[in-house]
Design a protein around this nucleic acid. Structure first.
Length: 782
DNA sequence: TTTCATAGCGTTTTT
DNA sequence: CGCTATGAAA
């Protein structure tokens, strides 16, 4: 047993060994938090606690997988596979699978990602005949999400005076109505959004005493990582679960709370001591990650925040280099500078690509870094942005799987019903949806009984074919695994073939993405357990639920030697030898959206703290005088956070003398001012004027002259006197035809299906055109 | 019914 | 700037 505790400091050991009763670990950045958590679980197991009785909630699936691996190594057996470790969302998804039938959901419920949610909202907003200019899905969704995270039902939302006033003031009084419609629609679709995974879990525990009792009894020991980033639902759930044994251990750092925008409240960790009697508090204050300089800077900046748990982080590490502040002219220069330094540092200090991380406040900032790295031939990977599973072609394929697993899923159904094209167009779908709503059945049920709805013969055939196909996939699922069915789907829908035939660069990438998806299904099907160590359940539904909850980081292959680019939020919990933080400018960092209240600004500062403390050895902070935003050059002041850093640990020699060109700077100010400049005027001198906002800034022309017609001007053709459309059903390559507008031309290619033939015609006067024979009138000349 | 062009809009941050 | 949501032509 002793060896488990070896190498732990006094506080860490205390945290590990306190196993009964509530425990709060205040873990500063880089203080060995993960080590403590894993050791603590191993310690519990070694004391005879059954792995089945331990629940550990982490922030990412990757963290969960890592912890499990480390515990297995420590113990030398595979007991760890029986632990319940995962994110709130994935652990609850797993529990819901078994229990959610009680509230009318299928166990293979679909999990909607933000895109799906937005799409449902759009439908609801349209059906309520509301102005979609006013009710933007994004705005509405965040409103609903906030309500859910505060455990507020649609009815309660409608009754709440404060909320109603807010919605009135923003001229959106119908959000309550939309909320209600949205919830109803999700339920009808057998689908849950991210928030529902928490809300429905809470509902089950609250309304079904037998469920609550079962899980209270099961989870005798509960651990929650990143507790400072939990929200109200998560708080309520854990409180319910822990109520029986009160063996609850939360780990967090109030200084790193950066998720208030999704309902996280720092109060949860500040109030923990009041929630339970006899809370043991352990502070981990020794940092093992950063150099003195980095840590001093971080400490000093975060001190500007008021109302924290008092603590002073210290380290025995060497002092290291000063933090380097860098000013560049534009965002493109910033990118070039960082790429240059990476190149230089690789040579000078023998770093590998994988030792570098470039962090930024917003995803949009990745572009300039990406470009310069590519130009320099430095391998990199961008985390976040749109994930693999959000790409069009992947989502399309997955939509088939989703429908097969859950035909109630209307979003997925709408996506694939006419993809690839099978003659079920918008009119047909709209009509089917109306029928479904009128009869209060699902869209799928309408399709199943299409003959009763009175579609015309051709359409009915198409629908029948589609329904038959989906049903055959479902049948196959009973005897085959998810991978086999997926391959069959790819074949039968000609979806893979279609992508394969697209030989453009993007088409090739799309094809490869679908292949990769198939591989991932195969891998998943064949591996004995899933991300949470769940053995056995290898159904299609489970697969789909899991991938929706996956992030880029979860799929990360640690072995690849690439520079990592990500937002600071995504970098939480990670560390890198060398870190660059880009765009340290007012309106970006702190974000222009978050400078209106002290609370907002303090969260930005905590974010800055997180960014700085990701670095182990070297840290560069960069900012640009001006950067391109929506196509035009705008200038920003250096971030106010730069002024808050203690001078002695900061090297400003690349920074134009001082962050804000004011007070306290050395003699360098003027020199740097001259050589770097700081105004847009100078930026324009070097890079030309910003593109004009006006569309028509081009050559002046007298107002009486009409603007140039669009480039694709048609040379007028007067149809022959005897023009009469011919029967083109047998049109052949090589025939000469006349078109009413385009004139005479020769057919060079025939393509398209029998139902929708397309002829390519090269016209004498107008060049090559693609003509759809069903609609265009052609006279065959010879 | 499908495709292609363009107008308009967006950037916090994520499960 | 780059994407996507709509509408006119095919």
């Amino acid at each position: 047993m002793q060896h488990l505790l070896d190498g732990l400091n006094e506080q860490q050991r205390e945290a590990v060994m306190h196993i009964n009763g509530p425990l709060m670990i205040v873990a500063g950045a880089g203080s060995g938090k993960t080590k403590v958590l894993t050791t603590r679980i191993a310690y519990l197991l070694s004391k005879g606690v059954d792995a089945f009785n331990i629940l550990a909630l982490t922030f990412t699936n990757k963290a969960a997988a890592e912890m499990k691996e480390r515990i297995e190594k420590m113990l030398g057996n595979n007991e760890a596979r029986n632990l319940y470790i995962g994110t709130f969302h994935s652990v609850f998804a797993r529990i819901l699978r078994a229990e959610v039938h009680r509230i009318g959901y299928p166990s293979s419920f679909t999990i909607y990602d933000s895109d799906d949610s937005r799409s449902v909202l759009k439908t609801v907003i349209n059906e309520l005949n509301l102005d979609d200019k006013l009710y933007k899905p994004n705005v509405v969704h965040s409103r609903i999400s906030q309500a859910k995270n505060a455990l507020m039902s649609p009815a309660e939302y409608a009754m709440d005076h404060h909320i109603q006033q807010e919605d009135m003031r923003s001229n959106r009084p119908a959000i309550a109505q939309i909320y209600q419609g949205y919830v109803a629609r999700c339920f009808k679709n057998g689908a849950m959004d991210f928030d529902d995974l928490l809300v429905k879990m809470h509902e089950l525990l609250k309304n079904f005493p037998e469920v609550l009792h079962k899980f209270q009894h099961k989870f005798k020991y509960i651990m929650i990582d990143e507790y400072q980033d939990t929200n109200a639902v998560q708080y309520e759930i854990t409180k319910l679960l822990a109520a029986a044994h009160e063996n609850i251990c939360v780990v967090g750092d109030d200084a790193q709370s950066i998720y208030s925008f999704r309902g996280a409240t720092i109060e949860n960790i500040l109030q923990f001591q009041k929630d339970y009697d006899d809370v043991r508090v352990v502070k981990l204050e020794q940092n093992y990650r950063c150099t003195q300089s980095i840590l001093k800077v971080a400490n000093e900046v975060i001190k500007k925040n008021i109302g924290q748990i008092p603590k002073e982080l210290w380290t025995e590490n060497e002092s290291g280099e000063k933090i380097k502040l860098v000013r560049t002219m534009t965002d493109n220069d910033e990118g070039r500078f960082v790429a240059d330094i990476i190149q230089e540092q690789k040579l000078r200090n023998h770093y590998y690509n994988r030792d570098f991380a470039i962090l930024y406040r917003t995803n949009a900032q990745s572009r300039s870094f990406e470009e310069s790295l590519r130009r320099m031939g430095i391998a990199y990977k961008i985390y976040g942005g749109l994930s693999f599973y959000q790409r069009k072609e992947v989502k399309d394929f997955i939509a088939y799987l989703r429908v097969v697993a859950n035909t109630r899923d209307e979003e997925a159904l709408k996506r694939i019903i006419n993809y690839p094209v099978r003659g079920i167009g918008k009119t047909t779908i709209d009509r089917a949806i109306v029928t479904a709503n009128e009869n209060n059945v699902t869209l799928w049920e309408v399709l199943e009984r299409a003959q009763e709805a009175g579609f015309k013969a051709g359409t009915l055939e198409s629908i029948k074919g589609f329904v038959y196909m989906i049903k055959s996939f479902q049948t196959m699922l009973q005897t085959h695994n998810a991978y086999d069915v997926a391959v069959l789907i790819g074949k039968n829908t000609t979806l893979v073939k279609e992508l394969f035939n697209d030989k453009t660069v993007e088409g090739l990438a799309r094809y490869e993405n679908v292949q990769e998806l198939l591989n991932s299904i195969k891998e998943w099907t064949e591996s004995p357990s899933n991300a949470e160590g769940e053995v056995g359940e290898k159904t299609l539904g489970v697969y789909l639920q899991q991938i929706t909850l996956l992030t880029d980081a979860d799929n990360d292959k640690e072995d690849s030697d690439v520079v990592k680019l990500m937002t600071i939020h995504a970098a939480k919990g990670l560390e890198f030898p060398v870190v660059f933080v880009g765009g340290v400018e007012e309106t970006i960092f702190p974000s222009g959206m978050s400078i209106n209240t002290r609370e907002e600004l303090e969260e930005e500062r905590r974010l800055f703290y997180v960014a700085v403390t990701r670095a182990k050895h070297r840290l560069w902070l960069t900012f640009a005088n001006a950067r391109y935003r929506f196509g035009n050059l705008v200038q920003n002041e250096p971030s106010r956070f730069l002024e808050e850093m203690p001078e002695e640990f900061v090297d400003r020699s690349y920074a134009g003398g001082g962050a804000r060109n004011q007070g306290g700077m050395g003699a360098g100010v003027e020199r740097m001012q001259r050589s770097f400049g700081s105004t847009t005027a100078q930026a324009e001198k070097m890079y030309g004027p910003p593109p004009s906002k006006k569309k028509d800034a081009a050559p002046a022309r007298p107002s009486y002259m009409p603007a140039q017609p669009p480039a694709s001007k048609v040379v007028e053709h007067k149809p022959s006197a005897n023009f009469e459309p011919s029967d083109t059903s047998n049109l052949q390559v090589g025939q000469v035809v006349e078109h009413q507008k385009f004139g005479f031309g020769e057919v060079t290619k025939m393509e398209g299906s029998a139902h929708n033939p397309i002829a390519t015609v090269v016209f004498k006067t107008n060049g090559e055109k693609k003509i759809m024979l069903n609609y265009a009138k052609l006279r065959i000349v010879q």
